[in-house]
Structure formats: structure tokens, C-alpha cells
Design a protein around this nucleic acid. Structure first.
Lengths: 241, 241
DNA sequence: CGTCACGTTGACGGGAGTCAAAAGTTGTGG
DNA sequence: CCACAACTTTTGACTCCCGTCAACGTGACG
């Protein structure tokens, strides 16, 4: 069972069965119920996790109580202590969004794996680089966009990663137990502002949403909301600076 | 000359002289004058750069003209195309802040180096992971803080990385040709708002600044500005101002 | 059916973005 | 050495987005 999970992960793609077996031997599998905590910020950071089933959210908190959801992880994604962090504990808190099963490995063992299999190390590097680019891109957009734009962008991103073809037509269903507070944490806003933005989208027939679920009814309209102009999405050439 | 640069870089620490020589052979050295562009966003991403002397800024632009300064790189830092980015071009534009000399290597060659020297790969991974953590931490703070707080935090960060012991007392001098627009890009704000914040700091005697330079006169005060309370809620015994 | 967390909506105020114009600096050329 | 031009920085006035506080509605669950 676990072997099949490992074999299907992009991270370990291309390894032989024996090699996968060697990696499997260094991991243990664990599971958590919805809402349970995998680890908290500040705890000793010496494990790497790989999601086998379910979803988790990674949250970074500031002293003044602001919680930012920095990532949502799905099966195949890895997270936790990749590097030593110089003795510092985990930077984020990770909670299970749904019943979740994950594999865990000591950071030391993982680094040993990276040394043994350089292709895996490169793949990890690619993934982390992509995350860095994504984080910077998000930061860039957050700087100037309105809350509605950020919410629209966030919903589109979630739909791309977690959306299931909806019941009717072009609808995409995002079935994640994310609260308004979580979405606020992903958009750098507040639950109230997120609710207002989503209420407007709902009135306009762009989305439908309820308690802990969201459906995208009109992807095009949401795209133009994200772009800034809720009116006409004319495709004009972007003037570089 | 270049060998000494390579040898002093944390990135390649621990390699023998022959190994360094092998790496050196795959790199070429280039230089740029202040304001010149190393590469622009969208250009084919197939080079890795290592700063030998000088400083550069990495800027990410959005369609609507918002420019975010995502990083300032100093000697020893590397940047550019670490992974293939899946055929996408560079995500950021990199400009020289001062006269800058950098070494350049093909991405393919760099990845070959990573495969050959796993310790280097781990170090790269640590660096990128640290950047990711920093980016997320910054995003987290930006979400709730005021412009003044973000400016204070940014100045403190720059002082830590680039500050020189100032002429008098506890002053730290940040001598980088960063414009208000650049600082606005680092704080997710506008030149005017940054100017207002810095004017207030200057009136309060916390900093001094002019055209493209800044001095931190009172680090403690700036820290409390960054923390949110411009008053002095220090844990104890600090004379009220 | 009661409780509680989550979601929605309204009113209010302040921070900060935008527009505009003046003041200060730097570099250039006469 | 001075004067001019171009850029950067500063300051002011205005507007509005959105964060905060508060009340109410709603679905979930024992």
C-alpha cells in the first residue's frame, strides 16, 4: 500500500522498486482526524512529511494574532523540515483539513536520501523553487490588488488544485473545509471582508458558496474579477515597465 | 581572483581546490554598471548567477505596473535559473544597484554540479528553503502591519545585511542606491507613503535619510516602531522618551 | 431543542492610495 | 563657476477601501 503511494509520487518518480523499498523502510505512516494538529510552530523541526491521503493547511502566525495560510497540501506533496533551519523549530503550524494520512521520515534520513539519489534532490529543489516563486508572486499581487481581486485569485488557484467538475455545466466544486477565516488568511484580509466579496460574487452569479464549500459557476467572470476589471476582459498587450 | 571568490562562498565551502577549479572552469565572469539590467522577466531562463562584488535587486512586476522588490543580493548570493522552471522564462527582472561583478554558469552545468557534489545541493536547498521561509514570513507580516511598521522592519532587515557602522555612536548606515520607489516595492506600498513614514521617523530622531541613503540612529526605537507601538512598551527599565 | 461555531450584514472611522505641485539633488554643458 | 534640466523626494488635500466592532441569521451536532 505505502509502496504504491511512494511509487506514484512525482518526488520519487524514476526510482527502482528496491530503491523505493529502501526509502519506505525509513518512513512511518501516521494519520490524523479533521482538525487535528500535525505539528505546531516552534516545535523541534526534525521530520519530513509526505501527504498520502487527505489535505492539510500550513499556517504562519504573527505575535499579534494574525494567521496567514501559507499553503494547502494535497496527496503527493511534502512539507516539514527539509533543512535543519539552524536549530530553529518549525516556522508554521500544520493542521489536518480532513482525515489525513501521511508518511513521516527523520530529516536526517531524508537528507541522506537526497545525497544518495541526486535526481530526487533536484526534484525537491525544483519543488521548493516553485514554491518560492509562487510565494513571491502571491506577495506581488497582494501588494496592489483589492480584497475582491485577491479572493477571486485565491479561489481560482484552489479550483485548479482541488476543484472537482461540478454537478452542472462548467461549474467547479471546491470541497475543502476552509472557513472564511482561512480564506482571510490566504488573502491577507479578514473574514468579514472575504464574506463581503464572496457575497457580491454570489449575487452576480459568479460563484455559489455555503458553509465550508465553494463552487465556481462562471470561471471567465471570476478571472476578470481577479484581473481587476469586473467588466470587459479585453485581451490587450501588457505594457512592460 | 575568481577562485578566491568561489572559495569564500558558503555555497561551495568544503570543496577541494581541484573541485573548485572544476566549477570555476564552467563559469564566466561578467560585470554591469549601476542601473544596468542583468536579465529581464520572461527572458529564457538558463543561467545561474553568483554575485562576486556589488549588489543587485530582483524585481517582480505585475501587469498593472506594480513593482515588488523581492530580494536584494550581495556578494556570495546566487540567483537566476536554479531549476528549469518548466520552460518558463525568468520570473523576475534583475538590475544592478551599483557596479556589479558576477559569475555565470549554464543551468544545466549547475545541475550537473549539484549531482556531483550532493553537499552543495543540500546547501542550495537550505538557502532556497530559507528564502521561502523569509518570503512567507514577510507576507505574513505585510498582511496586518501598517506601512510605517513595514518600512521599519524593512530598514532593520537592510541594516542587518548591508549596514555599516555609522559615523557616530550606534548609528548604522545603509548605503544602497534604493529609491523611495524601491522601498515602496519592498514594503508593498507607494513612494509617497514610504516618504511619509520616513519623514516621521526622521522627525522623531529615529533615522536620518537623504537621496538614496539611510542611517539608523536609534535601533531600539525603530524596533518598537516595527513592533507596532511607537511608544516605549519595553519590558522594563528603558527611560521614557 | 438548545448550544455553539460559522457566516452575513450594517455602521463607522482611519490608514493609505491617488492626484497634484513644490522643493531639494545630482549631473551636465556652456 | 554658474545655470539648467531631469530626477527624486516631500508635502498637502481628497477619497475610498477595508479593518473593526457589533448584531443578527444559519447550519451542524449532540
Amino acid at each position: 500500500m505505502r509502496m504504491k503511494v511512494l511509487a506514484n509520487m512525482p518526488l520519487f518518480a524514476g526510482l527502482t522498486e528496491e530503491q523505493l523499498d529502501g526509502i519506505d523502510n525509513r518512513m512511518i505512516s501516521l494519520s490524523w482526524a479533521e482538525g487535528e494538529r500535525l505539528y505546531g510552530a516552534g516545535e523541534s523541526a526534525d521530520h519530513l512529511y509526505v501527504v498520502a491521503a487527505g489535505q492539510v493547511k500550513a499556517v504562519q502566525s504573527t505575535r499579534d494574532g494574525q494567521n496567514t495560510v501559507v499553503d494547502v497540501l494535497a496527496p503527493g506533496d511534502f512539507f516539514g523540515a527539509i533543512s535543519g533551519r539552524g536549530g530553529l523549530g518549525y516556522a508554521e503550524t500544520v493542521d489536518a483539513l480532513v482525515t489525513t494520512c501521511a508518511l513521516r521520515m527523520d530529516t536526517d534520513a531524508f537528507r541522506q536520501v537526497l545525497v544518495e539519489y541526486p535526481q530526487v534532490a533536484l526534484r525537491v529543489l525544483d519543488t521548493v523553487s516553485a514554491s518560492l516563486a509562487a510565494a513571491r508572486s502571491t506577495a506581488s499581487r497582494h501588494a496592489a490588488a483589492t480584497v475582491a481581486q485577491r479572493v477571486a485569485t485565491t479561489l481560482l488557484g484552489l479550483a485548479d488544485r482541488f476543484g472537482q467538475p461540478g454537478a452542472s455545466g462548467n461549474g467547479m466544486l471546491i470541497q475543502l473545509p476552509l472557513t472564511r477565516a482561512d480564506l482571510a488568511g490566504m488573502t491577507g484580509s479578514t473574514p468579514e471582508s472575504v464574506s463581503r466579496a464572496m457575497s457580491r460574487f454570489r449575487e452576480e452569479g459568479v460563484i455559489d458558496s455555503g458553509r465550508r464549500w465553494t463552487a465556481i459557476l462562471d470561471r471567465e467572470a471570476l478571472l476578470s474579477e481577479a484581473a481587476g476589471t469586473s467588466a470587459e476582459p479585453v485581451t490587450d498587450a501588457s505594457a512592460a515597465n
